[in-house]
């Protein structure tokens, strides 16, 4: 079994070395779990510091069309949270993993059962896109018990009071949603972005920026304000539409950061 809280550990180590985290995202089971095993290896080889792995859900209301379609493909091959955890127990890749899942699959799995199974599967952290900090107490308690980091999202619209609560609830890093909107939209940095991110940073936890970053130059631009960059839709799209070129894209994102 891994040591636990690997996301925090990874970020702390990178910060100490003066490096930035590159966090690619893929959807588990897109189009099936055998392919996911291959893609995880590719991400690892391309130099991912942490990999964010999506769990398919029928109603992914925080995701844009690219990830919605990836979820549909994954559901078509009967990929479920249970199967993903089983798969991770068997595949054991060494790059730390963050599981991103909507709440209902977790709720139906049972909260404690989920965190226990996630620990056994070597999951380092979790992101629940529809869990607000207000509702998060029971989730955080189990996460702590099973040594799993809880990563919360901060939005440009989050008020200072909310930012404080969110940063305090986050372990590992804080996920800064760089645009107001859903994943995969065109990158557009808010003009108050820098001030807002300064505010988030002032509460003293690492910040990674995600949502809307698709090109190496965008990654390079946003990483100067953060401790890491998350790239989702662009990688999901590359693997689906142009798999032979996916590695090159991922590698170029890695090198830009």
């Amino acid at each position: 079994m891994k040591r636990g809280f690997q996301i925090k550990e990874t970020l702390d180590k990178l910060l100490k070395e003066g490096k930035k985290a590159f966090i690619p995202y893929i959807m588990a089971g897109d189009p099936n779990l055998e392919e996911t095993a291959k893609r995880l290896q590719i991400l690892q080889k391309a130099g991912a510091d942490i990999i964010e792995l999506g769990v398919p859900f029928t109603d992914p209301l925080a995701d844009g069309p690219t990830i919605q379609r990836a979820a549909e493909r994954a559901l078509k091959s009967s990929t479920t949270l249970r199967k993903i955890l089983q798969f991770l127990r068997e595949c054991r890749i060494s790059t730390p993993l963050v599981l991103m899942t909507y709440l209902n699959p977790v709720y139906c799995f049972g909260l404690e059962n989920f965190f226990k199974a996630a620990q056994e599967a070597g999951v380092g952290g979790v992101i629940f896109p529809d869990l607000t900090v207000e509702e998060s107490k029971p989730y955080r308690e189990y996460a702590k018990k099973y040594k799993i980091d809880t990563i919360f999202l901060v939005a440009p619209t989050s008020t200072p009071l909310r930012v404080k609560k969110i940063v305090q609830a986050s372990t590992g890093f804080v996920y800064y949603v760089s645009i107001t909107g859903i994943t995969g939209s065109h990158l557009r940095l808010d003009k108050d972005f820098k001030n807002h991110i300064k505010l988030v940073k002032s509460f003293g936890k690492p910040i990674c920026i995600g949502f809307g970053i698709s090109k190496p130059e965008e990654a390079k631009y946003v990483v100067q304000y953060s401790d890491g960059v998350i790239v989702g839709s662009a990688i999901v799209k590359a693997f689906h539409e142009n798999p032979h070129n996916a590695y090159n894209l991922i590698k170029s994102l890695r090198e830009a950061i």
């Binding site: 919360f152 999202l153 969110i166 107001t180």
Partner: peptide
């Protein structure tokens, strides 16, 4: 309860 993306909370 309130189970929504943070973007909507404000």
């Amino acid at each position: 309860g309130q189970f929504v993306p943070e973007t909507l909370m404000p």
